[in-house]
Nucleic acid binder design. Structure first.
Lengths: 356, 356
DNA sequence: TTGAAAGCGATACCAT
DNA sequence: ATGGTATCGCTTTCAA
């Protein structure tokens, strides 16, 4: 690991001063440096494979080009990291890098994570959660431009801005597809009704029923959990009734819940989607697409959420200040407010026409 | 976001020079600074909530205390991030932070990821893969102390060292549990036989059979894929035979494969584990533990792999050099060789006694 | 016992 | 047009 070339080395090779090297390589050469010298400098830089030292630049510019990401369990957990992937992709195109810290759901750790990130002088902060939820924003986040992805500030709007999936629309859209297949006897395996995603989707279900001019079947709402077992239990109960009362379509809280529902249906000797259609939510990779039958499901726009959040965040970071001593204040206006992103319905086969 | 306190500020408040502050706060105060001044300095530091600027430290010490992690799809994908969590936990206890970059399986991107990390002067590099596999180590990794987690150098041993799950032992151990439940008619849904994990586990199966003094049933080896559909298809075929030829236990390539197997069994009207026992692999969170029935499975020691890899990596990084100009060479000996980590069998219910 | 000064690497001002 | 110099914040040597 030989030492890397510095601006000094380039200057020596080109027979000029460090300052000349700096000016030329940053595009401020014209009008300052003889074009002949410029060429020599560029030559030398290429020859030595010179790249400015990022650490020195950070110190000098008071900007690290690092975005800190705190997450509850996105990195460490078995969950889809596409929010972070989407955020990272956007960051990368602008020369930024993301530094992710997981709290592994330890409430204590999110403050210290923010602190660690701030100590390392990240240029901005993003908080990402596994599921849509309210977030008690950790102390310290206000010290840098910040945004929330998949969660919302517990202090209400007007504080830290955020990006969320449009769950109301998602619920409505899923139900529209189900209704379009002719289903009228439904069951909603909603997940816990205390959960914001459940509540919003339920609101969406009501919207879609109203749109279709149908009364909303209150007793079709079956609160569940999010796991396979939960779907299994709820679907098992819902389907264990005489055939002419049995729901012909189950709208599940997520894809794992839908897997449980399929297992229950099979256990009762029912065909999916022949006897009962089952619709998931999330479009979980390696589950929804490879389930038997493959799941029709409402895809969560995770990548888009991450990308949108990062886009807003970066636009709030002042571009390289002309004078290091004169910090432009971050433009926080783009960081205000809540942005909703719509997913899309993926039709794969577990949703079929309502049986006659 | 007011400017943070610097050593200068502390010095002024304590009425001493910057150097005194530095000496005291780094423990080199005794024998150099009057203990009375020391106290004043510590007071002032606390009062101003002084913390040395990490960026300046990095520049000065030529060490960033950042470990770069390149992964193929661990961060962005829907897979268990516990290798990274384990690595990060170890790093954190020693004041390091991990900077993760996903290539999202794009071969082009791993070289540029290493480059990005090196440009940011990470102190060491780790490459983490989703599944056990051979890795064409990207150019540039040799420029920093490096280690591989869950993968092995395609150039063979003696190059970049690594940490792997002990798959041979894992296969053997899983089979030992199955045999202990009295099963003798078996089927091995192995995953693709070209895959190193499949091959090693198969070797383990052979070992365990030999241990038990039983001949290895070559025709019980059923190569599959890794998905639900694959398990469904293979199990469907294996179980669609007369009851007295039917395998009483299925050892699956992973938990999702096992889910497919359960679906197939249920479709054939078979009880799990009453008629057929089904064993998974991986102990995938939110699948194995919440499946119906909950899966007995061989847990992959992901966290331990990450922790072991990071431990070796950190021990190869020279401690803070006394003199910034005099770099101690990294101690690469700990980075050589392959380290195998054993998982453990988790018995949850999908494995039962062999039917009479 | 203390403080001044030299870097670490890069940039932007201000003289020349 | 060019190069010297201060600065970012910190550590460490050396001189007082």
């Amino acid at each position: 690991m030989q030492r890397k070339a510095t601006a000094q080395d380039v200057a020596k090779l080109a027979g000029v001063s460090r300052s000349a090297v700096s000016l030329v390589l940053n595009g401020h050469g014209d009008g300052n440096i003889a074009s002949e010298s410029q060429e020599r400098i560029r030559q030398a830089a290429k020859e030595l494979n010179y790249k400015p030292n990022a650490v020195a630049l950070s110190l000098r510019n008071q900007r690290t080009s690092v975005i800190g990401i705190v997450s509850d369990r996105v990195i460490s957990g078995p969950v889809d990291g596409n929010i972070i992937a989407g955020a990272d992709a956007v960051a990368r195109t602008q020369g930024f890098v993301t530094l992710g810290l997981d709290t592994e759901l330890d409430e204590q750790r999110d403050v210290s994570a923010v602190e660690t990130l701030l100590d390392r002088h990240v240029d901005a902060l993003m908080y990402v959660t596994v599921g849509l939820r309210e977030l008690k924003v950790p102390a310290g986040m206000e010290k840098a431009p910040s945004i929330l992805a998949n969660c919302f500030d517990s202090r209400g709007p007007g504080h830290v801005g955020n990006v969320l999936p449009d769950e109301v629309w998602g619920g409505a859209e899923a139900l529209r597809h189900v209704l379009a297949h002719g289903h009228r006897r439904l069951a909603f395996l909603t997940g816990p009704l205390t959960h914001p995603a459940s509540q919003r989707r339920l609101a969406g279900y009501r919207e879609a029923m109203a749109e279709a001019g149908l009364p909303f079947p209150e007793d079709a709402v079956l609160p569940t959990g999010w796991d396979i077992t939960d779907g299994f239990a709820a679907a098992g109960a819902a389907l264990s009734v005489p055939a002419d009362e049995r729901p012909t379509a189950l709208l599940c809280a997520n894809d794992r819940c839908a897997v449980g529902a399929v297992l229950a249906a099979r256990g009762l000797g029912l065909q999916v989607p022949g006897d009962v259609s089952i619709v998931g939510y999330d479009d979980e990779e390696r589950i929804a697409d490879t389930m038997v039958p493959a799941l029709s499901t409402m895809a969560l726009p995770l990548r888009e959420i991450g990308a949108a959040a990062m886009t807003r965040l970066l636009s709030a970071i002042p571009r390289v200040a002309r004078k290091a001593s004169k910090h432009l204040p971050p433009d926080r206006s783009v960081l205000e407010g809540e942005q909703l992103i719509r997913g899309r319905f993926v039709d794969r086969g577990s949703l079929g026409p309502a049986p006659a």
